[in-house]
Design a protein around this nucleic acid. Structure first.
Lengths: 201, 201
DNA sequence: AAAGCCCTACCTACTGGTAGGCAGGCGTCA
DNA sequence: TGACGCCTGCCTACCAGTAGGTAGGGCTTT
C-alpha cells in the first residue's frame, strides 16, 4: 500500500504534465482537475510547487536507479545493457509526446528551485556513470565496437538520447528518435544475445 | 535602418527570454520592462504572443540561413564547415545560459501555435540538410573520417548538438557542451586549414 | 490629414498560495 | 464503553499578483 494514493496520483499527473509542457507549462489547477480534488487540497500534500518538483525529481531519480539495476540484472553484455537503456529512453519519449523529466527540467532551469537544479545535475551524473560502465563492459566483451573513451562516449550518448527525444517531440514523430540514434545502435553487436529477460509484474 | 528599432528590440528581448526561460517562461511584462515601453504597446507591434513567436522563428530561420551561407563562403572543406557550425552552436549556448531557439521551442511544443511548430520542423530540416552536405563534402575531401551515411550522420549530429546545449544548460557549465561533442569533433581532420575567414562587420 | 507609435486605463482569466472549517479514523484514558 | 484530543485529507472562500489582450486618447512625423 503506497504512502497515499492521492499523493502518488498527484506525482503521476505532475510528472506527466512536466514532461509534456515543462515546469512553467502546468498549474495546480491542471493537476487538481486531473486527479479529481480541489486546487487548494494539493497544498496539503505539497505546500509549494518547488516542493512538488523536488519530490518529482526524487521519485524520478530513484525509479530510474531501479530501471538501471533491473537492466543490470537482466542483461549481461555492455551492448545489451546499452540497448535496453536506449529502449527505455525511446519508451520515455512516448512517440514524441514527452521528454525525459531531466531534459524537460533542464530546459526550464531558471524557473526551478536551486535544490532541483542540483538534483538534475545529480541525475545526469548517475546515468552518465551507468552508461560509462556499459561502454567499458561493451569494450571488454566486444559487444560495442570502436570504444576508446567510455566516459566521453557516455556523456555523448546521454546528450544524444535527450536530443533525440527533443527531435522526436518537435515533429511528433517517433521515427525521428530512431533516426537520431541509429549511428549509436549500429555500433552495438548483436552477436551475443541477452540472457533471459526477467519479467516485470 | 531597420523596419522599427522598437520592433527589433522586442524581438531581441523575446528571443533572449525564450531561449533562457522557454515559451511559457517569459511574459509581455518582462519584454516591456526590458525594452522600455509599456506592456500594452507591445500589442501594436505583435498583436498576440503567437504572432510574436511566429516572427521570432521567422527571423531565427532566416538569420540561421545567413549563418550557413556565411560558413559556406568562408570554409572549403566539409570538416571546416562542420566545425564552424559546432562553434556556432557552442556560442549559441552562451556558457550554458541559453538554448537554440529551436530546442527551446521544441521543449514547450504544446504551448505553441501550430504554424510555429511547422516552422520548428522546417528549421530542423534546413539545418539537417546543410549538415548532410557538410558530411558529404567531408567524406569526399577526407576532412571527416568514417562517414558512411551523411544523412543519418546529420540527423544524429543535430540531436547531439541540441542535447549538448541541454546538458550545458542544466549544469551552467560550458565544458559539458564540449564533453558531449568531443567524439564528433575528433572525427574532423584538421589537416586542411580553412580558407580566409570573411570578417563580419 | 493620415499614419505610426506609444500611452493610460482597464478587462477577464488564471497564477501559486493562505485561512479556516469539517468529516472521519486513531489511540488513550477515565 | 464512551468521551477526549489529535491527525489526515479534503473542502469553500479568498488573497495579491500576473497572464495576455482591448479600448481609446494623444503626440509626432510624413
Amino acid at each position: 500500500m503506497p504512502t497515499s494514493d492521492t499523493k502518488e496520483a498527484l506525482l503521476d499527473s505532475a510528472e506527466n504534465a512536466a514532461r509534456r509542457f515543462g515546469f512553467d507549462g502546468f498549474s495546480y489547477a491542471d493537476l487538481a482537475q486531473d486527479v479529481g480534488i480541489r486546487k487548494a487540497s494539493i497544498h496539503h500534500h505539497f505546500p509549494s510547487k518547488a516542493k512538488l518538483s523536488l519530490a518529482l525529481m526524487e521519485r524520478y531519480l530513484s525509479s530510474f536507479k531501479d530501471v538501471c539495476a533491473d537492466i543490470d540484472a537482466s542483461y549481461a553484455t555492455g551492448g545489451a545493457k546499452l540497448t535496453a537503456l536506449i529502449e527505455r529512453y525511446k519508451a520515455g519519449s512516448d512517440n514524441g509526446q514527452q521528454l525525459c523529466l531531466c531534459a524537460a527540467f533542464s530546459a526550464s532551469r531558471d524557473s526551478l528551485a536551486p535544490e532541483v537544479v542540483s538534483q538534475i545535475i545529480g541525475f545526469r551524473a548517475m546515468v552518465s556513470d551507468w552508461i560509462t560502465e556499459a561502454f567499458e563492459k561493451g569494450r571488454s566483451d566486444g559487444s560495442i565496437c570502436g570504444v576508446t573513451n567510455p566516459s566521453l562516449e557516455a556523456t555523448s550518448a546521454l546528450s544524444l538520447l535527450e536530443g533525440a527525444q527533443l527531435a522526436a517531440r518537435a515533429a511528433s514523430e517517433p521515427a525521428a528518435f530512431d533516426a537520431a540514434i541509429t549511428l549509436l545502435t549500429m555500433r552495438i553487436s548483436l552477436r551475443e544475445p541477452p540472457i533471459t529477460r526477467i519479467e516485470q509484474p
